[in-house]
Design a protein around this nucleic acid. Structure first.
Lengths: 188, 188
DNA sequence: GTCTATATGAAGATAGAC
DNA sequence: GTCTATCTTCATATAGAC
């Protein structure tokens, strides 16, 4: 029920996670070495290993710090009995975050290492299931599920697209909200 | 005008490219070593290096073999004066391919190494520009561009989504076609 | 076209001093 | 919390024989 509870981080850990996120977004997880992370914050690899025992732990911490940004909106959506309103609460927050953290979204949704961790670790699994439940509702028809998959992918993928790379965040945000709403309305 | 002309490959090269594509889809480009590729086809690393001088050349060859699948549809779309019909020709083919090569799509659209090559290499650049031109048409308004980005991302991302992982290819395909058409119609 | 063998560097990770 | 130094493994890549 409580789902996903991330661990708090020290200041040193936060610096590592922030630098790692940035590098993961640019080079992918496998393309980012601990040396690159250490260099980015101006310490040695050994200092990084003092904070996290393995590279995987750093990846897990970065996933946690991003997923936690959705937690409040997800809880609020789940508390609403009206499914359409729940969906809107969640999607609005998802769009906010996707635009705000534009550079990261592709990595979080697609990087093979992150995808594997999201599938393997029980807390992440549960969190993702909660997200999908609100997106799909009780409706298991292929049409609803493909539509949910398309909306999720459209929001996540659109913010990274070169086609909109030069748009202001505010413009991009407004258009995403408007188009997502209209897409939800069709076939309802 | 001619745009993108891929190099033909020998049988040995084709075996390498096929195995590489499969591994890239699972582990990403950076997560795939030449040893893994060599093992997958049952030869040594040296044999692979006899066919391609660098790992990057293998990646380029894999991108080429996938992009070329869109070439005919793109040419046909460009030849049609009716923009809506051109868009439909291209999107239908894109959906066909996305469903058919489901496992690969995420990697081709998102892997940092592949994205970098698509941006850096002139032939790829030109090919992508042609694709986007058909998708967006002459229309440069933010709304059209965000819509185009969403459609591209929705198709590319939806096929990989866990939400639809258990759907038959035919079902997925039919729903994607139907929903994409309706999404195109809104706000036209 | 494939092999064995090898060069060279960088990866993840640890020990122990300050 | 950070350092220097080190270990081991694996990466890309090459030389030269069959």
């Amino acid at each position: 029920m409580s789902g996903f509870t991330p661990v708090p981080h020290s200041a040193a850990q936060t610096r590592i996670v922030t630098a790692a996120l940035d590098l993961f977004a640019e080079h992918g997880v496998s393309g980012t070495s601990l040396q690159m992370i250490a260099d980015a914050i101006g310490v040695t690899k050994a200092a990084v290993y003092h904070q996290f025992n393995t590279k995987e732990e750093i990846v897990v911490a970065t996933i946690e710090t991003e997923l936690v940004r959705l937690e409040d909106a997800l809880a609020a959506a789940e508390a609403d009995e009206d499914h359409a309103r729940a969906q809107e609460i969640l999607l609005t927050r998802v769009i906010d975050l996707a635009v705000e953290r534009r550079r990261l979204v592709g990595t979080l949704l697609n990087d093979p290492v992150i995808v594997r961790l999201l599938e393997e670790r029980a807390p992440f699994q549960q969190f993702m299931r909660r997200l999908f439940r609100v997106l799909i509702g009780g409706d298991a028809r292929p049409e609803s599920r493909v539509r949910a998959a398309m909306i999720g992918a459209a929001i996540g993928g659109a913010v990274t697209s070169p086609v909109v790379a030069d748009l202001e965040p505010a413009t991009l945000h407004a258009q995403l909200i408007s188009l997502t709403k209209r897409f939800l309305e069709i076939s309802d």
